[in-house]
Computed example of a mutant assay.
Amino acid sequence: MSSALTDLFAHPIVQAPMAGGVSVPQLVSAVAEAGGLGFLAGGYKTADGMYQEIKTLRGLTARPFGVNLFMPQPEYPGASTGSTGAAEAAPPYSAAVEVYAHQLAGEASWYDIELGDPDSGRDDGYDAKLAVLLDNPVPVVSFHFGVPSPEILDSLRRAGTFTLVTATTAEEALAVERAGADAVIVQGVEAGGHQGTHRDNPEADGAAIGLLSLVAQVRETVNLPLVAAGGLMRGSQIAAVLAAGASAAQLGTAFLATPESGAHALHKQALTNPLFVRTELTRAFSGRPARGLVNRFLREHGPYAPAAYPEVHHLTSPLRKKAAAAGDAQGMALWAGQGHRMARELPAAELVRVLADEIEVARAASLGGGASS
Protein backbone atom coordinates (compact mmCIF):
# COMPACT_ATOMS: atom_id res chain seq x y z
CA MET A 1 0.00 0.00 0.00
CA SER A 2 1.33 3.46 -0.87
CA SER A 3 2.22 5.79 2.01
CA ALA A 4 -0.53 8.21 0.94
CA LEU A 5 -3.12 5.43 0.96
CA THR A 6 -1.80 4.23 4.33
CA ASP A 7 -2.36 7.74 5.68
CA LEU A 8 -5.90 7.73 4.26
CA PHE A 9 -6.74 4.53 6.14
CA ALA A 10 -4.81 5.47 9.28
CA HIS A 11 -8.22 5.57 10.94
CA PRO A 12 -10.07 2.36 10.09
CA ILE A 13 -13.63 3.76 10.10
CA VAL A 14 -15.28 4.76 6.83
CA GLN A 15 -18.81 6.20 6.73
CA ALA A 16 -20.66 4.63 3.83
CA PRO A 17 -22.21 6.80 1.13
CA MET A 18 -25.98 6.44 1.49
CA ALA A 19 -27.94 7.87 -1.43
CA GLY A 20 -31.37 9.39 -1.09
CA GLY A 21 -30.40 12.30 1.14
CA VAL A 22 -28.81 10.41 4.05
CA SER A 23 -25.10 11.21 3.58
CA VAL A 24 -25.42 14.98 3.88
CA PRO A 25 -22.40 17.29 4.30
CA GLN A 26 -23.09 17.68 8.03
CA LEU A 27 -22.75 13.94 8.58
CA VAL A 28 -19.65 13.61 6.40
CA SER A 29 -17.91 16.56 8.06
CA ALA A 30 -18.66 15.24 11.57
CA VAL A 31 -17.12 11.87 10.68
CA ALA A 32 -14.13 13.52 9.02
CA GLU A 33 -13.49 15.87 11.93
CA ALA A 34 -13.48 12.86 14.26
CA GLY A 35 -10.78 11.24 12.15
CA GLY A 36 -12.86 8.87 10.01
CA LEU A 37 -13.36 8.98 6.26
CA GLY A 38 -16.78 10.32 5.35
CA PHE A 39 -18.49 9.93 1.98
CA LEU A 40 -21.00 12.03 0.10
CA ALA A 41 -23.43 10.07 -2.08
CA GLY A 42 -23.42 11.26 -5.67
CA GLY A 43 -26.15 8.81 -6.67
CA TYR A 44 -29.61 10.15 -7.56
CA LYS A 45 -28.33 13.74 -7.67
CA THR A 46 -27.66 16.05 -10.57
CA ALA A 47 -24.04 16.93 -11.26
CA ASP A 48 -24.67 20.45 -9.98
CA GLY A 49 -26.41 19.13 -6.87
CA MET A 50 -23.36 16.98 -6.16
CA TYR A 51 -21.03 19.94 -6.75
CA GLN A 52 -23.01 22.14 -4.37
CA GLU A 53 -22.76 19.49 -1.64
CA ILE A 54 -19.00 19.25 -2.18
CA LYS A 55 -18.73 23.05 -1.81
CA THR A 56 -20.79 22.96 1.36
CA LEU A 57 -18.69 20.14 2.79
CA ARG A 58 -15.44 21.95 2.04
CA GLY A 59 -16.80 24.87 4.05
CA LEU A 60 -17.31 22.54 7.01
CA THR A 61 -14.04 20.58 7.05
CA ALA A 62 -10.58 20.54 5.55
CA ARG A 63 -10.23 16.82 6.27
CA PRO A 64 -10.19 14.19 3.49
CA PHE A 65 -13.55 12.88 2.27
CA GLY A 66 -14.96 10.86 -0.60
CA VAL A 67 -17.73 10.99 -3.19
CA ASN A 68 -19.53 7.89 -4.45
CA LEU A 69 -20.85 7.45 -8.00
CA PHE A 70 -23.25 4.89 -9.48
CA MET A 71 -21.99 3.30 -12.67
CA PRO A 72 -24.25 3.69 -15.73
CA GLN A 73 -26.45 0.67 -16.27
CA PRO A 74 -25.94 -1.13 -19.59
CA GLU A 75 -28.79 -1.67 -21.98
CA TYR A 76 -30.35 -5.05 -21.44
CA PRO A 77 -28.93 -7.80 -23.68
CA GLY A 78 -30.93 -8.82 -26.68
CA ALA A 79 -32.26 -5.41 -27.69
CA SER A 80 -33.25 -5.58 -31.34
CA THR A 81 -31.78 -2.99 -33.68
CA GLY A 82 -32.48 -1.96 -37.24
CA SER A 83 -30.07 -1.44 -40.10
CA THR A 84 -29.17 1.98 -38.70
CA GLY A 85 -28.34 0.52 -35.30
CA ALA A 86 -31.29 2.29 -33.67
CA ALA A 87 -33.53 0.24 -31.42
CA GLU A 88 -36.74 -0.75 -33.19
CA ALA A 89 -38.54 -2.70 -30.48
CA ALA A 90 -39.69 -1.64 -27.04
CA PRO A 91 -36.89 -1.69 -24.47
CA PRO A 92 -36.24 -5.21 -23.15
CA TYR A 93 -38.03 -6.02 -19.90
CA SER A 94 -40.51 -3.21 -20.60
CA ALA A 95 -43.34 -5.75 -20.51
CA ALA A 96 -42.30 -6.93 -17.04
CA VAL A 97 -42.05 -3.33 -15.85
CA GLU A 98 -45.50 -2.60 -17.28
CA VAL A 99 -46.94 -5.59 -15.43
CA TYR A 100 -45.33 -4.36 -12.22
CA ALA A 101 -46.76 -0.89 -12.82
CA HIS A 102 -50.23 -2.42 -13.02
CA GLN A 103 -49.59 -4.16 -9.70
CA LEU A 104 -48.59 -0.83 -8.14
CA ALA A 105 -51.70 0.94 -9.42
CA GLY A 106 -53.43 0.43 -6.09
CA GLU A 107 -50.50 2.10 -4.28
CA ALA A 108 -50.66 5.08 -6.64
CA SER A 109 -54.41 5.36 -6.07
CA TRP A 110 -53.98 5.14 -2.31
CA TYR A 111 -51.42 7.96 -2.27
CA ASP A 112 -53.31 9.88 -4.98
CA ILE A 113 -50.29 10.24 -7.25
CA GLU A 114 -49.04 8.93 -10.58
CA LEU A 115 -46.23 6.40 -10.86
CA GLY A 116 -42.89 7.65 -12.15
CA ASP A 117 -41.62 7.30 -15.71
CA PRO A 118 -39.52 4.13 -15.83
CA ASP A 119 -37.56 5.46 -18.82
CA SER A 120 -36.11 8.44 -16.95
CA GLY A 121 -32.49 7.55 -17.70
CA ARG A 122 -29.92 4.83 -17.09
CA ASP A 123 -26.67 6.70 -16.48
CA ASP A 124 -27.45 8.83 -13.37
CA GLY A 125 -25.58 11.76 -14.98
CA TYR A 126 -22.34 9.79 -14.77
CA ASP A 127 -20.31 11.69 -17.38
CA ALA A 128 -21.31 15.09 -16.03
CA LYS A 129 -20.43 14.06 -12.48
CA LEU A 130 -17.05 12.73 -13.59
CA ALA A 131 -16.38 16.04 -15.31
CA VAL A 132 -17.09 17.86 -12.04
CA LEU A 133 -14.77 15.54 -10.10
CA LEU A 134 -11.97 15.97 -12.63
CA ASP A 135 -12.33 19.76 -12.69
CA ASN A 136 -12.63 19.98 -8.90
CA PRO A 137 -10.78 16.91 -7.56
CA VAL A 138 -11.75 15.39 -4.22
CA PRO A 139 -9.50 13.10 -2.15
CA VAL A 140 -11.43 9.88 -2.85
CA VAL A 141 -14.02 8.65 -5.36
CA SER A 142 -15.76 5.28 -5.04
CA PHE A 143 -17.92 3.44 -7.56
CA HIS A 144 -20.96 1.17 -7.16
CA PHE A 145 -22.65 -1.22 -9.64
CA GLY A 146 -19.60 -1.88 -11.79
CA VAL A 147 -16.00 -1.03 -12.66
CA PRO A 148 -14.95 2.19 -14.40
CA SER A 149 -12.64 1.95 -17.38
CA PRO A 150 -8.89 1.98 -16.74
CA GLU A 151 -8.78 5.34 -18.55
CA ILE A 152 -11.23 6.92 -16.11
CA LEU A 153 -9.40 5.50 -13.10
CA ASP A 154 -6.11 6.78 -14.49
CA SER A 155 -7.53 10.25 -15.13
CA LEU A 156 -8.72 10.45 -11.53
CA ARG A 157 -5.34 9.26 -10.29
CA ARG A 158 -3.62 12.00 -12.32
CA ALA A 159 -5.98 14.48 -10.68
CA GLY A 160 -4.76 13.31 -7.28
CA THR A 161 -7.84 11.24 -6.39
CA PHE A 162 -7.78 7.77 -4.85
CA THR A 163 -10.31 5.35 -6.33
CA LEU A 164 -12.28 2.56 -4.65
CA VAL A 165 -14.71 0.14 -6.32
CA THR A 166 -17.28 -2.14 -4.67
CA ALA A 167 -17.07 -5.89 -5.24
CA THR A 168 -19.37 -8.63 -3.96
CA THR A 169 -17.29 -11.64 -5.11
CA ALA A 170 -13.62 -12.48 -5.48
CA GLU A 171 -14.06 -12.45 -9.26
CA GLU A 172 -15.42 -8.91 -9.14
CA ALA A 173 -12.53 -7.86 -6.91
CA LEU A 174 -10.10 -9.24 -9.48
CA ALA A 175 -11.79 -7.13 -12.16
CA VAL A 176 -11.36 -4.09 -9.92
CA GLU A 177 -7.64 -4.80 -9.53
CA ARG A 178 -7.16 -5.32 -13.26
CA ALA A 179 -8.87 -2.03 -14.04
CA GLY A 180 -6.36 -0.19 -11.86
CA ALA A 181 -8.36 1.00 -8.83
CA ASP A 182 -6.46 1.83 -5.64
CA ALA A 183 -8.61 -0.28 -3.30
CA VAL A 184 -11.67 -2.51 -3.29
CA ILE A 185 -14.74 -2.23 -1.07
CA VAL A 186 -15.65 -5.80 -0.16
CA GLN A 187 -19.42 -5.85 0.39
CA GLY A 188 -20.95 -8.80 2.21
CA VAL A 189 -24.56 -9.93 2.00
CA GLU A 190 -25.25 -8.38 5.42
CA ALA A 191 -24.99 -4.84 4.01
CA GLY A 192 -27.96 -2.51 3.96
CA GLY A 193 -29.07 -0.82 0.76
CA HIS A 194 -28.09 -1.95 -2.71
CA GLN A 195 -25.72 -4.80 -3.34
CA GLY A 196 -22.98 -3.42 -5.57
CA THR A 197 -22.90 -6.36 -7.95
CA HIS A 198 -21.20 -5.58 -11.26
CA ARG A 199 -23.83 -7.43 -13.26
CA ASP A 200 -27.38 -7.91 -12.09
CA ASN A 201 -27.98 -11.62 -12.43
CA PRO A 202 -31.40 -12.74 -11.11
CA GLU A 203 -30.22 -16.34 -11.14
CA ALA A 204 -27.66 -15.42 -8.48
CA ASP A 205 -30.24 -14.01 -6.05
CA GLY A 206 -29.66 -15.59 -2.66
CA ALA A 207 -26.08 -16.58 -3.52
CA ALA A 208 -24.36 -13.57 -1.94
CA ILE A 209 -21.49 -14.23 0.47
CA GLY A 210 -21.11 -13.27 4.13
CA LEU A 211 -18.55 -10.58 4.88
CA LEU A 212 -15.90 -12.55 6.79
CA SER A 213 -15.85 -15.32 4.20
CA LEU A 214 -15.75 -12.79 1.40
CA VAL A 215 -12.87 -10.82 2.93
CA ALA A 216 -10.86 -14.04 3.23
CA GLN A 217 -11.59 -15.02 -0.38
CA VAL A 218 -10.75 -11.57 -1.76
CA ARG A 219 -7.60 -11.33 0.40
CA GLU A 220 -6.32 -14.49 -1.31
CA THR A 221 -7.27 -13.20 -4.77
CA VAL A 222 -6.04 -9.60 -5.03
CA ASN A 223 -3.22 -7.50 -3.64
CA LEU A 224 -5.26 -4.32 -3.18
CA PRO A 225 -6.17 -2.80 0.18
CA LEU A 226 -9.64 -3.95 1.27
CA VAL A 227 -12.43 -1.94 2.87
CA ALA A 228 -14.90 -4.35 4.49
CA ALA A 229 -18.61 -3.49 4.40
CA GLY A 230 -21.71 -5.32 5.59
CA GLY A 231 -23.62 -5.34 8.86
CA LEU A 232 -20.82 -3.80 10.95
CA MET A 233 -22.17 -2.00 14.04
CA ARG A 234 -19.60 -2.50 16.81
CA GLY A 235 -15.87 -2.02 17.19
CA SER A 236 -15.42 -5.71 17.94
CA GLN A 237 -16.83 -6.53 14.49
CA ILE A 238 -14.50 -3.99 12.90
CA ALA A 239 -11.55 -5.56 14.74
CA ALA A 240 -12.57 -8.93 13.31
CA VAL A 241 -12.54 -7.78 9.68
CA LEU A 242 -9.26 -5.95 10.24
CA ALA A 243 -7.77 -9.15 11.63
CA ALA A 244 -9.11 -10.99 8.57
CA GLY A 245 -7.13 -8.74 6.24
CA ALA A 246 -9.12 -5.55 5.68
CA SER A 247 -7.43 -2.16 5.96
CA ALA A 248 -10.62 -0.36 6.99
CA ALA A 249 -14.32 -0.93 7.63
CA GLN A 250 -17.23 0.86 6.00
CA LEU A 251 -20.38 1.40 8.08
CA GLY A 252 -23.69 2.72 6.79
CA THR A 253 -26.57 1.68 9.05
CA ALA A 254 -24.55 2.57 12.15
CA PHE A 255 -24.38 6.21 10.96
CA LEU A 256 -27.93 6.31 9.63
CA ALA A 257 -29.30 6.75 13.17
CA THR A 258 -27.04 9.71 14.05
CA PRO A 259 -28.61 13.17 14.42
CA GLU A 260 -26.45 14.48 11.56
CA SER A 261 -27.81 11.88 9.15
CA GLY A 262 -30.31 13.16 6.60
CA ALA A 263 -32.48 10.05 6.91
CA HIS A 264 -36.19 10.52 7.54
CA ALA A 265 -37.08 10.40 11.23
CA LEU A 266 -39.31 7.37 10.63
CA HIS A 267 -36.39 5.56 8.99
CA LYS A 268 -34.17 6.22 12.00
CA GLN A 269 -36.87 5.09 14.42
CA ALA A 270 -37.59 1.94 12.42
CA LEU A 271 -34.05 0.62 12.95
CA THR A 272 -34.86 -0.30 16.54
CA ASN A 273 -38.67 -0.34 16.36
CA PRO A 274 -39.91 -3.81 17.39
CA LEU A 275 -42.41 -3.67 14.52
CA PHE A 276 -39.50 -4.20 12.11
CA VAL A 277 -37.82 -7.38 13.24
CA ARG A 278 -35.78 -8.37 10.19
CA THR A 279 -34.36 -7.36 6.84
CA GLU A 280 -34.54 -8.90 3.38
CA LEU A 281 -32.90 -8.42 0.03
CA THR A 282 -35.60 -7.15 -2.30
CA ARG A 283 -36.16 -5.73 -5.77
CA ALA A 284 -39.48 -4.17 -4.72
CA PHE A 285 -38.33 -0.55 -4.70
CA SER A 286 -35.63 -0.38 -7.37
CA GLY A 287 -35.48 -3.56 -9.45
CA ARG A 288 -32.03 -4.40 -8.04
CA PRO A 289 -31.27 -6.43 -4.91
CA ALA A 290 -31.18 -4.14 -1.87
CA ARG A 291 -31.47 -4.94 1.82
CA GLY A 292 -34.19 -3.19 3.77
CA LEU A 293 -36.45 -3.61 6.77
CA VAL A 294 -39.41 -5.81 5.95
CA ASN A 295 -42.55 -3.67 5.78
CA ARG A 296 -45.90 -3.92 4.02
CA PHE A 297 -44.63 -2.69 0.64
CA LEU A 298 -41.73 -5.14 0.61
CA ARG A 299 -43.94 -8.09 1.62
CA GLU A 300 -46.69 -7.35 -0.88
CA HIS A 301 -44.60 -6.38 -3.91
CA GLY A 302 -41.14 -7.87 -3.43
CA PRO A 303 -42.02 -11.31 -4.84
CA TYR A 304 -43.28 -9.76 -8.07
CA ALA A 305 -40.73 -7.01 -8.75
CA PRO A 306 -38.80 -7.57 -12.00
CA ALA A 307 -35.03 -7.39 -12.38
CA ALA A 308 -35.17 -3.98 -14.04
CA TYR A 309 -32.92 -1.27 -12.57
CA PRO A 310 -33.22 1.70 -12.72
CA GLU A 311 -36.67 1.41 -14.34
CA VAL A 312 -38.33 0.17 -11.15
CA HIS A 313 -36.46 2.81 -9.13
CA HIS A 314 -37.93 5.55 -11.33
CA LEU A 315 -41.35 3.90 -11.27
CA THR A 316 -41.61 3.76 -7.47
CA SER A 317 -39.88 7.06 -6.68
CA PRO A 318 -43.12 9.08 -6.31
CA LEU A 319 -44.60 6.37 -4.09
CA ARG A 320 -41.62 6.38 -1.76
CA LYS A 321 -41.57 10.16 -1.53
CA LYS A 322 -45.29 10.39 -0.86
CA ALA A 323 -45.13 7.66 1.79
CA ALA A 324 -42.36 9.56 3.59
CA ALA A 325 -44.29 12.83 3.35
CA ALA A 326 -47.38 11.09 4.74
CA GLY A 327 -45.43 9.54 7.61
CA ASP A 328 -46.15 6.03 6.37
CA ALA A 329 -43.13 3.84 7.17
CA GLN A 330 -44.95 0.85 5.66
CA GLY A 331 -44.57 2.38 2.19
CA MET A 332 -40.99 3.63 2.50
CA ALA A 333 -37.73 2.01 1.42
CA LEU A 334 -36.22 1.45 4.86
CA TRP A 335 -32.71 0.42 3.82
CA ALA A 336 -30.83 -1.22 6.67
CA GLY A 337 -28.13 -3.81 7.29
CA GLN A 338 -28.60 -6.99 9.28
CA GLY A 339 -27.20 -5.34 12.42
CA HIS A 340 -29.86 -2.60 12.49
CA ARG A 341 -31.14 -3.48 15.97
CA MET A 342 -27.70 -2.47 17.30
CA ALA A 343 -28.03 1.12 16.06
CA ARG A 344 -27.06 3.81 18.58
CA GLU A 345 -28.45 7.35 18.54
CA LEU A 346 -25.08 8.96 19.14
CA PRO A 347 -23.69 12.06 17.44
CA ALA A 348 -21.54 10.97 14.51
CA ALA A 349 -18.25 12.18 15.99
CA GLU A 350 -18.99 10.43 19.27
CA LEU A 351 -19.89 7.24 17.42
CA VAL A 352 -16.53 7.31 15.63
CA ARG A 353 -14.75 7.68 18.97
CA VAL A 354 -16.80 4.93 20.64
CA LEU A 355 -16.13 2.55 17.75
CA ALA A 356 -12.40 3.33 17.88
CA ASP A 357 -12.35 2.60 21.62
CA GLU A 358 -14.22 -0.67 21.05
CA ILE A 359 -11.69 -1.69 18.41
CA GLU A 360 -8.85 -1.19 20.86
CA VAL A 361 -10.66 -3.13 23.58
CA ALA A 362 -11.27 -6.02 21.17
CA ARG A 363 -7.65 -6.03 20.04
CA ALA A 364 -6.40 -6.00 23.63
CA ALA A 365 -8.74 -8.86 24.52
CA SER A 366 -7.45 -10.82 21.55
CA LEU A 367 -3.84 -10.29 22.54
CA GLY A 368 -4.61 -11.17 26.16
CA GLY A 369 -6.36 -14.36 25.14
CA GLY A 370 -3.46 -15.36 22.96
CA ALA A 371 -0.96 -14.78 25.76
CA SER A 372 -2.83 -16.91 28.26
CA SER A 373 -3.53 -19.87 26.02
Rank of each mutant, 00 (worst) to 15 (best):
V176E: 08
A216E: 13
G188A: 08
F255C: 11
R219P: 04
I238W: 04
V215S: 11
P259V: 07
A263C: 13
F255N: 13
Q269L: 15
G188T: 07
S247M: 12
G245F: 05
R178W: 01
E172L: 04
A175Y: 00
E220N: 15
A208P: 00
V186H: 04
T166P: 03
I209W: 00
Q237V: 03
A207R: 12
T258A: 15
V215C: 13
L211S: 10
A183Q: 06
M233D: 10
R234T: 11
R178C: 05
V186T: 04
V218R: 13
G180H: 06
A173Y: 00
T221G: 04
G245D: 12
E220W: 02
A173N: 04
A204H: 07
V165G: 11
L212M: 14
A254F: 08
L226S: 07
S213Q: 08
L266D: 15
A263L: 13
T258K: 13
L256H: 07
V218G: 14
H264G: 09
H264S: 14
E171Q: 12
L211D: 10
I185R: 02
M233K: 02
S213D: 08
A216P: 02
Q250W: 05
V184E: 11
A249I: 05
L251F: 01
T169A: 02
V186L: 12
Q195E: 01
V165Y: 05
G193C: 05
G188K: 05
Q250E: 14
I209A: 09
A254G: 13
S261C: 06
Q187D: 06
P225L: 11
H194K: 03
D200W: 03
A249K: 11
A229W: 01
N201E: 11
R199N: 03
S236L: 04
L232H: 07
N201I: 00
G188C: 07
A257P: 02
D205T: 05
Q195M: 12
A207Y: 05
R234W: 02
G193H: 01
V189C: 08
S247W: 02
S213R: 14
